[in-house]
Design a protein around this nucleic acid. Structure first.
Length: 190
DNA sequence: TAATCGATCGTCT
DNA sequence: GACGATCGATTAG
């Protein structure tokens, strides 16, 4: 389970959002390892009103303008965190939100952290998977090619990818920037 | 199954 | 001072 290189992330955001589907999200932690297959993503682009970076750089979104292959972890709704991977070259301000993961390794650890038993309730949403994987604000700006949190190649590529509109946003809601693996049972919402 | 709503606080205007 | 790239419980149909 080797880390994908920076060159994987340093490409157009919509391409990364699609190609990261099927790959493995890995977190090596003192409590144990958690692994999941990425099954749902969303792209957030330059000039996209729903993108946190759309109105210029601020202390919160500055990671998005930095080098690709870093984690962008933000806090929202007063209680939840979400995890993105930064894409493109520096200064662009784009990222891919990881929205859902199919749990593969460390299920009991995920259950413990989530306080839920059912596998389908462990990682079927951006804030849920962050909790299940114990991703915290300390991971913001983390290099996904170096630390304990990374994305790895998988042996099985997704056979078909569905493209549709994003979830939970008001502006830019009509843009087809959400991607998921067709038929997968672990996505956040049909 | 779908729609509604409360929780809760960092960030930006 | 307003508002979320959400979740889960509750209510309605």
């Amino acid at each position: 389970m080797q880390q994908l290189p920076i060159s994987f992330y340093d490409r157009p955001t919509t391409l990364v959002a699609r190609e990261i589907l099927g790959k493995l999200l890995v977190h090596a932690h003192d409590e144990g390892m958690t692994v999941g297959r990425i099954v749902e993503t969303e792209a957030y682009l330059q000039g996209d009103p729903a993108c946190h970076a759309a109105r210029g750089m601020t202390p919160r979104n500055s990671v998005m303008f930095g080098p690709p292959g870093r984690a962008y972890v933000y806090f929202t709704y007063g209680m939840h965190y979400c995890f993105n991977v930064v894409t493109e070259g520096e200064g662009i301000g784009e990222a891919v939100l990881i929205r859902a993961v199919e749990p593969l390794v460390g299920l009991d650890l995920m259950r413990q952290r989530r306080g839920r038993e059912r596998v389908h309730e462990l990682c079927s949403g951006p804030a849920k998977l962050v909790q299940a994987f114990n991703i915290t604000k300390e991971h913001n700006r983390a290099d996904l090619t170096k630390g304990g949190l990374w994305v790895a190649q998988s042996f099985e590529e997704p056979q078909e990818i569905i493209t549709t509109t994003r979830i939970g946003i008001k502006e830019g809601a009509d843009l087809p920037l959400r991607y998921y693996i067709k038929g997968n049972k672990f996505i956040s919402k049909k």
